[in-house]
């Protein structure tokens, strides 16, 4: 099958955007990633993630239940790695502790919910949002809604197979990959700093 021409871009795309999968976007194979609907090598995607996060005005991570809770072996380690990445890119966290629709309203300042994620994104003016530790189904439900109603740039760091509806998705994300991403981000940050400093020195 020919690769889809559909682009997964920040919204607001409209009232009810289609699922990217229904527009022909396919999830990446191992070692690959998706950037805006196109398959790229994982390293390239990491760089793009780092760029996006470092350039963001208000980058926010949305840690989900599987890393918020130290419920199984490895969960706390992964959480620590996510915290390391957050620190490297200067992002903060707003948790998604569960998936229940909360009515009448959640407190958008302190949490995000997959059934109405836009409330949190709007309230906090989040321009880059990172999903990590969220069960795939709920991440997908949320990502489409965000693309429909906000201009937030979404990134999904998925422990399984990835998410077509995020603008960038990595798959099989484990501690090592998170650490690698952190390295990439740090290196990029340093390079930028050097560039800024360099240009300063030159000027």
């Amino acid at each position: 099958m020919a690769a889809s021409e559909y682009r997964v871009l920040p919204g607001p795309e409209g009232y009810l955007p289609p699922a990217a999968a229904s527009m022909g976007v396919e999830l990446p194979q191992r070692g690959e990633a998706l950037v805006e609907g196109r398959v790229v090598p994982e390293e390239e995607a990491m760089l793009r993630i780092a760029e996006r996060l470092l350039a963001a005005r208000n980058p926010v991570f949305f840690p989900g239940p599987t890393i918020l809770w130290a419920w199984k072996e490895g969960a706390a380690e992964k959480a620590r790695a996510v915290l390391g990445l957050m620190e490297a890119v200067g992002a903060r966290a707003i948790p998604m502790p569960d998936y229940r629709p909360k009515y009448p309203m959640i407190n958008p300042a302190v949490e995000i919910n997959p059934n109405h994620p836009n409330l949190t994104i709007w309230h906090n003016r989040i321009d880059v949002g990172v999903f990590v530790g969220v069960h795939c189904h709920y991440a997908n439900v949320a990502l489409k809604i965000i693309r429909g109603g906000t201009d937030c740039y979404t990134i999904a760091l998925c422990g399984e197979m990835g998410h077509e509806d995020a603008m960038i998705t990595l798959r099989d994300v484990d501690v090592a990959k998170l650490e690698r991403l952190t390295e990439v981000a740090r290196a990029l940050a340093t390079a930028r700093l050097l560039r800024v400093e360099g240009s300063g020195a030159g000027g």
Binding site: A20, N140, V141, I145
Partner: peptide, 25 residues
Amino acid sequence: VMKSNFISYAAHASWQQEILAAQER
């Protein structure tokens, strides 16, 4: 996901799309 408001309709719709997306995958 059935409160009478736009966000819950949108959540329901997104959920349905996700099932269709799973078929595609």
